[in-house]
């Protein structure tokens, strides 16, 4: 099994007068690792809960592996949505893991115990009495050991300290190569998790504003520095995300289009061209004048 694909069409969802999703068209290929990025309240959790059939959209279509997942046990048994320290039964860690083994067809008990040991989880402790970091670690263990063809991890790493986050990344990749599946990870640790993603989705106020390969995005975010006038002339017709002025020098950040040969143009104009880290690009795209 190498993962389930996902298709949504014009997906909308509101809570009262708050629009959580505003016409989301999404297409995820099976077997890739996706980063789902967005600010708080951008609709990430709502989107994932609809894909996992935890709730229904107000309108629009959802297909997971070609089928509507809602109240469809054959499909939902292949979908896992793990949310930050939530949804965990009230029992000892050992019993929680044992319970999931009966619930999830692809569950790997040995692997779950291996992970629990690596994260240093106390097997006999009641899940409710775990520390925040331990709860997050338990969520990670569950997320990986279910081995679901569509695995969605919603901010599971939030409570983990840095060594535990590295451990999680290591284990996730090692298991993914052995058992390829579709994995969607939402996280605020963009700089740290960026290298894990094959493709990146950015939600902003309920709309999908970016879907690109992670490497493609790294190439699209560009900064241009030089004399203010020259930079202004250079910027005409380009998608400017932000600008900074220091004396007579100006630095603008651009969201370039693939194939625009900015490097050559900048060289000709005598301007300095730099690239933008993924996290900076994310910040620019989801704040300020571009995020309306």
């Amino acid at each position: 099994m190498s993962g389930l694909g996902v298709e949504t069409g014009a997906l909308t969802k509101s809570y009262g007068d708050v629009t959580a999703l505003d016409g989301v068209d999404l297409s995820l290929e099976p077997g890739k690792i996706y980063g789902l990025l967005g600010r708080n309240g951008s609709g990430k959790s709502t989107l994932m809960s609809i894909l996992a059939a935890f709730q229904r959209p107000d309108s629009g279509t959802v297909r997971v592996g070609g089928h509507d997942p809602y109240e469809n046990g054959d499909v939902t048994s292949q979908i896992a949505l793990i949310r930050e320290s939530g949804d965990i039964p009230q029992a000892s860690v050992r019993r929680v893991l044992g319970y999931l083994a009966t619930l999830r067809p692809a569950w790997d008990t040995d692997y779950a115990h291996h992970l629990a040991e690596r994260f240093g989880l106390p097997m006999r402790r009641h899940a409710q009495r775990l520390s925040r970091g331990q709860k997050a670690a338990l969520a990670c263990v569950i997320g990986l050991a279910t081995r679901c063809p569509l695995t969605m991890l919603d901010e599971v790493t939030l409570g983990l300290d840095a060594p535990a986050r590295y451990l999680f990344q290591e284990e996730l990749l090692a298991d993914y190569v052995e058992h390829p599946r579709t994995i969607v990870i939402s996280t605020h640790h963009i700089a740290e998790f960026g290298d894990l993603f094959e493709e990146v989705l950015i939600l902003d106020r309920g709309r999908l504003i970016v879907h690109d390969t992670a490497d493609g995005l790294r190439e699209r975010g560009v900064s241009v520095t030089g004399p203010a006038e020259t930079v202004d002339r250079f910027a005409v017709g380009l998608h400017v995300l932000g600008e900074q002025i220091l004396g007579g020098t100006k630095r603008i950040t651009l969201y370039s289009h693939p194939g625009q040969d900015l490097e050559r143009q900048a060289r000709v104009a005598g301007l300095e061209l730099g690239s933008l880290p993924l996290q900076d690009l994310f910040v620019h795209l989801t704040t300020g004048k571009d995020a309306q």
């Binding site: 890739k32 590295y166 290591e170 990749l173 993914y176 190569v177 290298d195 894990l196 094959e198 992670a214």
Partner: peptide
């Protein structure tokens, strides 16, 4: 590429590229 990806914690498809 899989060893490389796991070792450096990067996406295997990206490493393969």
């Amino acid at each position: 590429t899989n060893q490389f990806a796991t070792y450096y914690r990067i996406n295997p498809a990206t490493a393969a590229k």
